[in-house]
Design a protein around this nucleic acid. Structure first.
Length: 664
RNA sequence: GCCCGAGUAGCUCAGUCGGCAGAGCAGCUGUCUUGUAAACAGCAGGUCGCAGGUUCGAUUCCUGUCUCGGGCUCCA
């Protein structure tokens, strides 16, 4: 029997019989691998295990241990979902169903505008389990696009995919927002299409690969139903999207569901209410919040800290109004390029005014208010500037997406020569401040010129983008490219932080801008006595105080570190007779600027301790007879079991001071 | 803005197949005076999101609207 040899990932070669498949290779290597194998890569192309191998190929067997394996698992589970739905809802048709982070989704169009509700998910799940139980093989077939159109004659979305991708690969990829590239995930391309059959009645257009059979799946759960537009286009039909999660083992699935439950407990909207930090009265309208005393107390500490750091770093604080004449926004370009995010104009005394969506034009005017010399540069203006953006009503979300918010905004006016060093030091400054709040994991994106809606010369965009890229390279920060994601006036670096449970949130943004200085005619006098145009760097560090606060709440799960906690210590007299001493302790702590509160002895001690603990206070201090006699407190620290009795008050104050100083 | 879903006491949620609306927690009052995560009793609290419609009668059914949630799009 003829033999071939293939190269394994470790560089070794392995001889197998001619005509063997990737699955045969896995079995040849070992029964454990055969059992775990889902797909293979052959010369870096993902293929089914049923693919025959050829001599000299580099072959790697993929299991659910890898991202590629897990993605396949999820993709195949999505197919099973489609099979179940099509069986259960006669006349239904299906669109696309890719793997996504932690799971998958599939889009459906049901006949006569029927809908799927959350209550239906269980029945669909049950049908999926039957399909998995039946262990149906995923069989790959390749046919011409024309045959594909016939096969999917009753499924217009599938036909559209074939027509878009397989029959006209050069079609305008931009139509409808979902590019042909993305749809190409579904098929093989080059005039051929591939589809998978896993029962007499079910086929699906798909590029593959898939797990060998449905029996390899099983650790999944359907999560929710949502609407989604066909090809992400609000002008096209709205489909029913079912989201699910899928994992390699029962344990992984349970772990994921546990993480979701934990995330829900951290939800800043829930904690904001439970800890009495802020609320969103419906009377105000969507996306508008009011800060209660405790939330405002934390915010003030955050803002004070921010101001101090900016002072140290050579910024000058400025203050600007919330509205300005429309002419300003015409000059800046906002009305041309940002209008849809702006509140509509107010007509006053024959003039038109807009609420500000950004602070930059105001800072530009401050720069422009006097003649500037190169000796003055860089000029760093800083403002906690409140802006208003008309976010789509469906987009507002707690503090994370809100219509009125305050940016820790700064605009730096520098010479072209100064800009690169300034940007590099800005990145360091941003990270340093974020670290002070307990964030230590960052990701950056370099966003380049948008295809539509942007102003300026390509050469300037290129220059600005390079300056940002250099700063990122110098910072050692990992970053990815966001093609076309820049602001209308310039490219930007966005910095995301990862929170305590691994989710990332966009906070900082840093943008290089040659356009606004041009539009407003900004100048400085150089050492050569000539007038030059400065470069402007826009920078929001925490981004929006509101979002930052929301992220911070979720990061620390509402248990603010002592330096931020709205109440650092609750003082609980054991009985009413200890009330006077409790008041003394409170006064002593307040004298050092600590935030302490007495909880009177009207209720049993256990109940008051519980109440304080539920508020996640750093310290609960219990004072009774012994403490009155010796000037001590009983210290019950957050996150510890039990308590320390008889701690001298001064020792406790010193300890708290250390903690606040260290931002622990 | 679009799709789907949901709005019942401050909070979490029952309930009404159309016939005077319920619990727990929180709140208030009283009793208890407490040493480390829920004392006891009582009281009060609701135009069942809002506006129309159908009906003898609507919190319940229908329509519209507002708000919220999950997505889509967008974004600090």
């Amino acid at each position: 029997m003829a033999e071939i040899s293939v190269i394994l990932p470790d560089g070794s070669t392995r001889t197998i019989s001619s005509g063997a498949t990737a699955g045969d290779l896995a079995a040849d290597i070992g029964p454990g691998l055969a059992k775990a194998a889902l797909i293979a890569t052959v010369d870096d192309v993902e293929v089914d295990l049923s693919s025959p191998l050829a001599d000299g190929q580099q072959v790697s067997i993929i299991t659910a241990d890898s991202d590629a394996g897990l993605e396949t698992l999820r993709h195949s589970t999505a197919h099973v979902l489609a099979q179940a739905v099509l069986e259960m809802y006669p006349g239904a048709t299906y669109a696309v169903g890719p793997p996504i982070e932690d799971g998958f989704y599939y889009d459906f169009d049901l006949p006569d505008g029927a809908t799927i509700s959350d209550d239906d998910l269980e029945a669909i799940e049950n049908r999926m389990r039957e399909i998995i139980e039946a262990d149906q093989p995923f069989e790959r077939h390749e046919v011409s696009a024309a045959e594909g159109l016939e096969l999917f004659a009753d499924h217009p979305y599938k036909r559209e995919i074939i027509e878009t991708v397989a029959m006209a690969p050069d079609a305008d990829a931009d139509v409808g927002g979902q590019s042909a590239d993305e749809l190409a995930d579904e098929v093989a391309g080059d005039g051929q299409i591939s589809y998978y059959r896993n029962s007499d009645s079910f086929i699906d257009l798909c590029r593959g690969p898939h797990v060998p059979s449905t029996g390899r799946l099983g650790y999944f759960k359907l999560m929710s139903v949502a609407g989604a537009y066909w090809r992400r286009d609000s002008g096209r039909p709205s489909l029913q999207r079912i989201y699910g999660t899928a994992w390699a083992s029962r344990k992984d699935l349970a772990g994921h569901l546990h993480r979701l439950a934990e995330a829900e407990k951290r939800d800043h909207r829930r904690l904001a209410r439970e800890l009495d930090l802020l609320s969103w009265p419906t009377e105000l309208g969507p996306g508008l919040a009011v800060w209660h005393p405790k939330g405002a107390a934390v915010r003030r500490i955050i803002e004070d800290y921010s101001r101090d750091r900016h002072d140290e770093a050579g910024y000058q604080s400025v203050v600007t109004p919330h509205i300005a004449r429309s002419e300003l926004w015409e000059t800046s370009g906002h009305l041309d390029f940002y209008r849809e995010s702006m509140y509509p104009p107010m007509e006053l005394d024959g003039a038109s005014y807009h609420l500000k969506p950004m602070n930059c034009p105001f800072h530009v005017l401050i720069f422009k208010s006097s003649q500037r010399s190169y000796r003055d540069l860089p000029i760093r203006l800083f403002e906690l500037g409140t802006v208003y953006r008309y976010e789509l009503s469906g987009a507002v979300h707690g503090l994370m997406r809100i219509r009125g918010f305050t940016q820790d905004d700064s605009h730096i006016f520098a010479t072209r020569e100064q800009a690169p060093a300034e940007i590099a030091s800005l990145v360091a400054f941003v990270l340093s401040v974020l670290r002070a709040f307990g964030f230590d994991s960052f990701e950056a994106r370099l966003a380049t010129r948008p295809l539509e809606k942007s102003i300026g010369e390509d050469a300037e965009w290129e220059l600005a983008t390079e300056a940002l890229r250099d700063a990122l390279e110098a910072s050692g920060l990992e970053y990815e490219l966001d093609e076309g994601g820049g602001a209308f006036y310039g490219p930007k670096i966005d910095i995301d932080v990862r929170d305590a449970i691994g989710r990332s949130w966009q906070l900082s943004t840093l943008q290089v801008d040659f356009q606004l200085p041009e539009r407003f005619g900004l100048e400085y006098v150089g050492s050569d006595g000539n007038r030059h145009r400065p470069v402007m760097i826009h920078r929001a560090l925490m981004g929006a105080i509101e979002r930052f606060f929301g992220v911070l709440i979720e990061h620390c799960s509402g248990a603010f570190p002592a330096w931020l906690a709205p109440v650092q210590a609750a003082i609980l007299p054991v009985a009413a007779t200890h009330g006077d001493y409790a008041a003394e302790v409170e006064a002593r702590l307040r004298q050092d600027g600590f935030r302490a509160e007495v909880s009177d002895a009207q209720e049993p001690l256990g109940r008051r301790i519980r109440a304080a603990k539920l508020q996640k206070l750093p310290y609960v201090l219990v004072v009774g007879d012994d403490d009155v006699a010796h000037g001590t407190v009983g210290v019950n620290a957050r996150g510890t079991d039990g308590d320390e009795r008889g701690v001298p008050l001064e020792d406790f104050a010193a300890r708290l001071a250390d903690e606040v100083e260290a931002h622990r």
